[in-house]
Design a protein around this nucleic acid. Structure first.
Length: 635
RNA sequence: GCCGAUGUGGCUCAGAGGUAGAGCAGCUCACUCGUAAUGAGCAGGUCGUCAGUUCGAUUCUGACCAUCGGCUCCA
């Protein structure tokens, strides 16, 4: 007999060899039905796993988060089975569960088309109905190599060869299909009830562009059909928030063949930009930042000195002036270095916080361009902080707090990553260690959760990245803090210390928005285009009922203008319903209807965006107070 | 850059080997109107670009460009 401790702390004594499935049945009939896998002493196991010794056990149901992952992973095997049935000779890559579903990579003679997805899904449904059991078998390395080698599964062979010594190698078989897999899996294919194949993509084997490109099929799966429908509906909803669609509809910006990756900002988009920049300037001035502007094109020698020529050339654009080589700046820092060096600095000047809204150009691969989220020129809300080594931690904490404050104002949730030394980089290991440790300590001092991103730092230093989410759940790096011991060295930056001697300052590169363009894209999606009043390109639209109310409407507009409130009149000879509809379509926060009653009483009938059946009449001066308060609160 | 898909008036989309349509938007006219579309009329496209096949191509083929979904890369 073995003693099993369950999640709730209760203990069951069962016969040795009892399977997890039998244990679940022993606990309750409901659990037996919902169970798909389990955890034994924290390790994921199939329901068929026999309990050999005393253990802590958790039975996982299909509804639980871990359970959903098991289900999705199992359905990726089902996908592979269907594909190999339909397209014999297809070789298998990998097929994991991912955040919202799963994928499987294939190497096939057949080029999959979107139409094939329906055929494959039908085959999957057929296989699910057959209700094959997922049977686990542990094998020796030699046996596994022989099995997959015989079948020409070169990718599986490569995976097996890379498995560490001593690890158990297992294979799962359902019907005529066997895959190399650690498991666990659902008991049988019949559990796959609600799944959908979503799209096709190319993906390099093991994520390296040096390898062959495989064909990846993405899909998703849920415990029940209602959950799947719900998810598919949310995907559709998300498309409505897409900043590329809303940017066009709301007339904020446009992209053209004449400048791929070089966005054009329209008047309304400029209001957004300028509002964000104004806010940025106010908040930075308050925190002791100064502002500079450095040139966009600078001499080749500068880029050689900074190390960009050696480490960043592929991403840069070049030009010639009077037979000399110049580069268009991909970063603002070298310009900032030059400004620092324009005079002798004292330790009393430090920390020196110097900001720059700088337009940088970077050559991104054509296939990577994406609306305003990935472009080839963008404005960084950059700043370089020059400081004493003793000021590092406090300065980093100051930036972390600043970023947190900004994102909070816009209602963004974010996650943080710490990126360490990349392969192509400069400087000593000691300097990198010191810098990485300083960033880590600051994060710990703030009690922040963070993920480590090995080898993803800038070529001159490690960094803390702040990631925001787009409407489809993809995350984008926005804010970043990069600690740099290299540039001060390269440019021989100095300050005069208390001892009257020259010393080397340390510097931070940091951005809060990251890229104004990217931040605007995420804002559009965050608010679904319905901006809070302080950001809205048009804050108030006045709709006169008829021609005789136009004069009053115009008088209101000039009063709003006096107060820096962005207002306009819709003077078209249209019915009020038509004008209301249009103002709502344009997501204008406040629509004011003015007719005889309002004209006579110096009032306005207020309709807020998204609120039907309103039209509350209030005095004009009361409305002004209301909107001013809302602008002030940035809500 | 790589894999796949797409590319028709400002926008959303239909269409066929014989030289293009709809709705919305725009313009004109009428209606002067109280909270999500008043009616009528007009105008607007060398069908992404460049080659090729053909008596003839926007429709077939190829190359290129751009966009979309990924991979890679990064703010």
């Amino acid at each position: 007999m073995v003693r099993i401790t369950l999640m709730d702390g209760s203990v069951r004594v069962v016969e040795q060899g009892t399977t997890l499935g039998a244990l679940a049945a022993n606990i309750s009939r409901g659990l037996a039905k919902a169970a798909i896998a389990g955890k034994v002493d924290g390790e994921l196991k199939d329901l068929s796993y026999p309990l050999k010794a005393d253990a802590d056990v958790e039975i996982m149901t299909i509804e639980s988060e871990g359970g959903l992952e098991v289900l999705r992973h199992s359905i990726s095997h089902l996908l592979a089975q269907a594909v190999q049935n339909l397209y014999p000779g297809t070789k298998l890559g990998i097929g994991p569960a991912i955040a919202n579903g799963f994928y499987y990579d294939f190497d096939s003679e057949h080029v999959f088309t979107p139409e094939d997805l329906g055929t494959i899904a039908a085959e999957m449904a057929r296989l699910a109905k057959e209700n094959y059991a997922y049977q686990r078998r542990e094998v020796s390395r030699a046996e596994a190599l022989a099995f997959f080698g015989e079948r020409g599964e070169e990718y599986k062979v490569e995976l097996i060869e890379d498995l560490p010594e001593g690890v158990a190698i297992s294979m799962y078989t359902q019907g005529n299909f066997t895959d190399l897999c650690a498991g666990p899996h659902i008991p049988s294919t019949g559990f796959a009830k609600a799944f959908k194949l979503l799209n096709l993509a190319g993906a390099y084997w093991r994520g390296s562009e040096k390898n062959k490109m495989l064909q990846r099929i993405y899909g998703t799966a849920f415990a029940k059909a209602a959950d799947l429908d719900d998810y598919l509906f949310k995907l559709e909803e998300a498309k409505r928030r897409d900043h590329r669609k809303l940017g066009l509809e709301l007339d904020l910006f446009s992209l053209h063949d004449e400048g791929p990756g070089f966005p054009f900002f329209h008047p309304k988009g400029m209001i957004l930009r300028n509002t964000l920049e104004d806010f940025w300037r106010v908040e930075h001035r308050r925190r002791g930042y100064q502002e500079i502007k450095t040139p966009i094109i600078l001499n080749r020698k500068l880029w050689e000195q900074s190390g960009h020529w050696d480490h960043y050339k592929e991403n840069m654009y070049f030009t010639q002036i009077d037979d000399d080589d110049y580069a268009v700046k991909p970063m603002n820092c070298p310009g900032g270095m030059i400004v620092y060096k324009t005079k002798l600095r004292s330790y009393r000047d430090l920390p020196l916080r110097v900001g720059e809204l700088g337009l940088v150009h970077r050559h991104e691969l054509s296939g990577a361009l994406h609306g305003l989220l990935r472009v080839r020129n963008f404005t960084q809300d950059d700043a370089h902080i020059f400081m004493l080594p003793s000021q590092i931690k406090d300065e980093i904490i100051g930036v972390i707090e600043l970023v947190d404050y900004f994102y909070h104002v816009f209602g963004f949730e974010y996650h943080v990553e710490l990126s360490t030394r990349p392969e192509d980089s400069m400087g000593s290991d000691e300097a990198w260690d010191m810098a990485t440790r300083a960033l880590e300590e600051a994060l710990q001092a703030k009690g922040m959760d963070y993920k480590i991103n090995p080898g993803d730092g800038a070529f001159y230093g490690p960094k803390i990245d702040f990631h925001l989410r787009d409407c489809l759940g993809r995350t984008w790096q926005c804010g970043t803090i990069q600690l740099d011991f290299q540039m001060p060295e390269k440019f021989d930056l100095t300050y005069i210390g208390e001892d009257g001697q020259k010393h080397r300052p340390v510097m931070i590169h940091r951005v809060v928005y990251g890229s104004i363009e990217r931040f605007i894209a995420l804002l559009i999606e965050q608010y679904a285009g319905a901006f809070p009043v302080w950001l809205a390109p048009i804050q108030v639209r006045i709709l006169p009922i008829s021609e005789r109310h136009e004069e009053y409407a115009k008088a209101l507009v000039s009063q709003f203008n006096e107060l820096d409130i962005r207002a306009e009149v819709d003077e078209r000879r249209e019915k009020i319903g038509y004008k209301i509809r249009e103002a709502q379509t344009e997501k204008i926060p406040f629509t004011l209807v003015v007719g005889d009653q309002e004209t006579e009483t110096e009032s306005v009938a207020v309709r807020r965006y998204g609120q039907a059946n309103s039209g509350e009449k209030i005095a004009f001066k009361d409305f002004v107070a209301l909107i001013q308060e809302e602008i002030r609160r940035k809500s």
